[in-house]
Amino acid sequence: MSLFVAAFGFGLVSMSVIALAAVGFTMQFGITNMINLAYGEVMIASAYVAYYIDQTGISIWVAMIGGAIFGAVFSFLINRFIYAPFMRKGTANLGMVIVSLAVSLMIANLLLPIVGYYSVSYRERFGSIVRLGSVVLTVNQMLIIALAVVVMLAIHALLRYTRLGKAMRATAANPTLARSSGIPTQRVIDIVWLITGALCGLAGTVAGLDSETFAIASGAGFLITALAAAVLGGAGQPYGAMVGAVVIGMVTELSAAAWSPDYKQVVAFGILVVVMVLRPQGLLAKRGALAAAG
């Protein structure tokens, strides 16, 4: 039994990491209509930026801010100089997916000569241990959970209560009408890329910290897990991505305890396939954060 309680603790950490990644990914799709397959590589690139800052001896939490800033600026630039020009030319959605795949390969291969093949780790991987009953977590893991909770609440507050957040939802729902209402949709979309890019950078650093070691090859796994959580919850819906992250994070860790850690990914995608068969629109397709309450 205590094995499952411990797994529950790891589940909390996993879902936090996945939620940070999946919410940014799903908002990019929901608001800018872009399925950004380069998301995982931007996560990794940001994780490396944080790694180099970490190497100077500064706290990993400061390095994480560096990773988030890098992710924000990098994502903004990718959209400005690659995605947006293609979209202006009227490239179809499938074409945009291929463009993002190309960007993903370019990032990975540009990164390779700089960072090398080998796995790296942040200096401070564990921190001291905290016991809550049978749940044993490191201080870093506790901080990751707290960070995810704070970020999710902040995203909720942004979308629900601020003028900018409502303009984002209006732009997502009906971009032409948004412009006719005087909303500068181009600027709104720029800000969406900055915010989701920051989430992506933060998620990359947190994922690197949580997985203890990471390498360029980790990007694909990051992307696929974020994608699974986003689709599970209902593509484009931030609350859906949060729910998807909870389900995938928790079930994979519990299954690892019950069965074998080797099958985590199999279990995650097993859930995804079952949900897609029973509810193809995703768990929260109708009632996400981009929608109104009630």
């Binding site: 939802r169 997502a172 009906n174 209402s181 909303i183 109104a292 309450a293």
Partner: peptide, 22 residues
């Protein structure tokens, strides 16, 4: 517009707020 004349997933109040964005 004739169709797509409101922000469907937003509340009525939010629609009006967005109408008054400026």
């Amino acid at each position: 517009p004739q169709v797509n004349d409101i922000f469907e997933p937003l509340s009525v109040l939010e629609n009006l707020e967005m109408g008054g964005y400026l």
